[in-house]
Simulated scan of single mutants.
Amino acid sequence: MATLICGSLAFDTIMTFEGRFAEQILPDQLHILNVSFLVPGLRRDFGGCAGNIAYAMRQLGGVPLPVATLGNDGADYLERLRALGIGTDFVRQIEGTYTAQAMIMTDRDNNQITAFHPGAMMQAHLTRIEARPDVKLGIISPDGRDAMLQHAEQFHAAGIPFVFDPGQGLPMFGGAELSHFVDLATWVTVNDYEGRMLCDRMGVELHDLSRRVKGLVVTLGGDGCDIWEAGVKTHVPAVQPAAVVDPTGCGDAWRGALLHGLEQGWPLARCAMLGNQLGALKIASRGPQNYQVDATVLAQA
């Protein structure tokens, strides 16, 4: 069975700042902020939420189908997806635009500053989602605003259960819109900051929110994650990584593992544990799509 992954395909330009952002930014001078960071390390990777999640699922043996758009510079990304065995049935190229671009700067404490140009992503709503016999699951991850709204409605109309993962796209929506997303979704995933913002905008608490879906997961970075089911919280501890090299794409690796587990019909706690394992594996590699899942990870799942 296949999983539809709605979100961005992007090129990530990843830069390494050897100092600490906090030492370069004066809190009392934010109103006249003018800073420059020397970044000796720079590389370009394939990225974007849909691409990163699809990569993780494929590493685990799944059948991911990204629902995303590329610009006229996206031929290399299409070729890469096909080489990985990831279907491109729902990947559309938009002429006259660039593929989405993320410029990510990481300091020595793994804090990140990101600038994002959406490009072709803003046309993602042109691709419709309809019922298909081989599609079992879906996810709404950060994408163009119209695409997120329309794809959620289309998943619901097609009877396809899906994860609502608003991520960096959360600030685009007001409380009523977020509440509607939750009512359409089967599961919700957020990090701790996004969880606070989501609850604040909806005017609810996490335990109340969890009663409106089958499961709610709040990821906590190096502290693992909390699972909420029917108002009850369960903590799933973190997995210690072999090394902390690059956090870019860790959340997407986690979500790919979550979807893999949900596709197998696992309990949510088991899905989250595999997510923590994959996140730990990813953070030890540079770039969002350069780690390899070995038999050890699969055996522990």
Results as ranks from 00 to 15, higher is better:
F173R: 06
D165Y: 11
M202Y: 01
R196V: 05
R201C: 01
A115C: 11
L170K: 11
D146R: 14
C199G: 05
V163D: 02
T189M: 14
A131E: 14
W187V: 00
A147Y: 07
F155H: 06
T106V: 14
M197D: 15
L137D: 04
H207G: 01
H180W: 09
A115I: 13
I104P: 04
I140K: 01
M105G: 11
H180T: 14
F181N: 01
N110A: 15
Q123R: 15
I140A: 10
V163K: 02
P171G: 09
N111C: 11
A120W: 02
G175Y: 01
P161T: 10
E194W: 08
S141N: 05
A152F: 07
I140T: 03
M172T: 06
A185I: 04
D200Y: 02
A157R: 12
L216P: 04
A124G: 05
I160G: 04
H151P: 05
H125V: 13
M122D: 15
R201V: 01
N110P: 05
L178W: 00
P166Y: 02
I140M: 09
S210Q: 12
R145M: 09
V218W: 02
G215V: 02
A185V: 05
P133C: 12
L170M: 11
R132N: 12
G159W: 13
P161N: 13
F173T: 05
G174M: 09
V204A: 04
